[in-house]
Design a protein around this nucleic acid. Structure first.
Lengths: 140, 140
DNA sequence: CTGTATCCTGCCGGATACTG
DNA sequence: CAGTATCCGGCAGGATACAG
């Protein structure tokens, strides 16, 4: 197995410790990265609409490779956000769905995503302004 | 300048288009990645507590390098989430603060972060269970 | 269909040095 | 203090082949 994740290195220094994302070396940062990561966020969002099978998920999350989807799902399953339900039929069928905790996370994530999507016009406008100002290098 | 971001490649195919993060090639995904990225999320969160100067930010976001903080701030400024206020004094003083839109984004982000932090015990427990099951390779 | 194993490349991002 | 410039190693992640 690959398991190139952060497993192993992510333990708090010692003693009781607030799980503060701001401090390097604390596990909440790792989990946050799984959740907010490029594929993690999209996977959780897709799953919020209902349980999906591997390839359906792959189609829904445009651009993800088999490898990354598999890796992402393992990380999310390990963190207890996604539940994997395999049926030993032939051909095999595996469904992925959010756990209760995963659903809560996905809701917050969706709130964020919807905000960003809904304000993209502002973002694009800001970019236009920024680029115009900073393009003043070489065009006097 | 570096500008190794996604600038340039992120335009919608053509026509009117919902800014759907699920489709590759649409700019909302890029912005979402700036926001949720490893340093973007922490930077926005830090800035939500109030305006900060470069090195203060660097200290607050434990583990970030000068380069990445600079890069992150540029991306967020370009997207209109962060405002950069430079005072031409000596020594120079630059303050970074959230724009109104940035503040809204940061709020949603914080809701997510606080949820994750608050449930780390569950996550850690889930990990323990997962690892125990999957460690059943080589210990019969 | 649902994945895992392997190879390979690009770029992410850290360290360092320099500028205004 | 507030950054930019440059180098460069490591790993994220894509393509492909293969297994159950």
């Amino acid at each position: 197995m690959d398991e190139n994740g952060d497993s192993g290195t992510d333990s708090c220094p010692d003693e009781a410790w607030a799980f503060d994302v701001f401090s390097k070396q604390c596990p909440s940062r790792g989990t946050l990265e799984h959740v907010t990561g490029r594929w993690g966020s999209l996977t959780l969002s897709a799953l919020h609409e209902g349980s999906l099978r591997f390839n359906a998920l792959r189609r829904r999350v445009d651009g993800v490779s088999e490898k990354m989807l598999s890796q992402t799902l393992h990380a999310l399953e390990r963190d207890g956000l996604v539940h994997r339900e395999a049926q030993p039929t032939n051909p095999p069928r595996v469904d992925y769905e959010l756990t209760p905790l995963g659903r809560q996370v996905a809701e917050r994530l969706l709130a964020l995503i919807e905000l960003v999507e809904g304000r993209m016009d502002e973002v694009l406008a800001a970019r236009g302004r920024y680029d115009e100002v900073h393009a003043a290098r070489g065009t006097p």
